[in-house]
């Protein structure tokens, strides 16, 4: 009884879209469909189109680079912040909660602010570089720099989340273990590799899996900063799927591409959790 409303909602707004998306991906589902109500069955043609299109390789590579780059940098910096905040210095609690702000801001707000900071001619970052006698960097307008810039902004957004989860994990490690380790001569780096890291592993797994699952589908930041450009250099599978469905109104191909995204995300989660369970069992 108590579960019914939630179950109905989850079925309508998660279950139905997934099933509908699978069906659409086998249909020629375009704007015409909305007038005629007919979406002819085309088999795997949408998938063939999407995978053989020139942009697929670029989008796949960009998705991989964007996800891996973001996750590695967010995690390392987040862990560094978490270890730093564990020192419990004066004001650490206040500073730690203020750090959450980049995570709580609407993504489109962050995109707008960064877009202006990174503006080639009038942005403050290049203004700052000029102060050191350095030249302007075309942060968002060069095909070779834009992806790195977008990753950088995404890292800025992700640090607070990583810090918070990892800090929570660090707090759960009993201090006695560090005392025992220091008696055995393990302090500093040794204490980290022998005590902190093994005990933090479960939290690390959660952080990384959630990180990948959230990062792989990021859309707001890329659309806000570059719209996938210049020349598709920041186009990912998620943004390309949006492009196909809502710019070119080919919902069938858009659905096919977003299904590929779900499969990649699910595969990653399964493989990672398997490997991790095995590592813990051993």
């Amino acid at each position: 009884m108590f579960l019914v409303p939630a179950a109905v909602y989850l079925i309508l707004f998660f279950g139905y879209p997934v099933v509908k998306n699978i069906i659409m991906s086998f249909q020629a589902y375009t704007t015409t469909t909305f007038y005629t109500g007919v979406a002819p069955w085309v088999g795997i043609q949408n998938y063939v189109h999407v995978i053989t299109s020139q942009i697929f390789g670029t989008a796949l590579l960009n998705t991989a680079l964007f996800t891996i780059g973001s996750i590695v940098a967010q995690f390392v910096l987040g862990l560094a912040f978490a270890l730093f905040f564990r020192r419990n210095f004066p004001l650490s609690g206040l500073l730690r909660s203020l750090l959450l702000l980049p995570w709580l801001l609407p993504l489109i707000v962050s995109s707008a602010v960064w877009k202006w900071i990174l503006d080639q001619d009038s942005g403050v970052l290049n203004q700052f570089l000029h102060g050191f006698g350095l030249g302007s960097v075309p942060w968002l307008t060069s095909t070779s720099v834009a992806l790195i810039t977008v990753i950088g902004v995404n890292v800025w957004i992700g640090i607070p989340f990583n810090t918070t989860i990892l800090y929570g994990g660090l707090q759960d490690i009993p201090p006695e273990l560090y005392e025992a380790a220091s008696l055995d001569g393990a302090t500093g780096w040794k204490a980290f590799t022998n005590v902190t890291w093994p005990l933090l592993r479960p939290v690390v797994s959660v952080t990384l899996v959630l990180g990948v699952v959230y990062t792989i589908k990021v859309l707001d930041i890329i659309l806000g900063l570059t719209n996938g450009g210049p020349a598709n250099s920041t186009q990912t599978i998620a943004t390309q799927s949006y492009e196909l469905s809502f710019k070119q109104f080919d919902f069938g191909q858009g659905a096919a591409l977003s299904n590929i995204l779900i499969v990649i995300s699910a595969l990653f989660a399964i493989v990672y959790l398997r490997l991790n369970r095995k590592a813990v069992d051993d």
Partner: peptide, 25 residues
């Protein structure tokens, strides 16, 4: 239900939007 909730976190918003656009229409 718990498993469903966890899985739901993996579904990209663009998938939901794609299907809802047709249904909402």
């Amino acid at each position: 239900v718990l498993f469903g909730i966890l899985i739901s976190q993996m579904i990209p918003g663009i998938v939901v939007a794609n299907a809802l656009y047709a249904a909402y229409n």
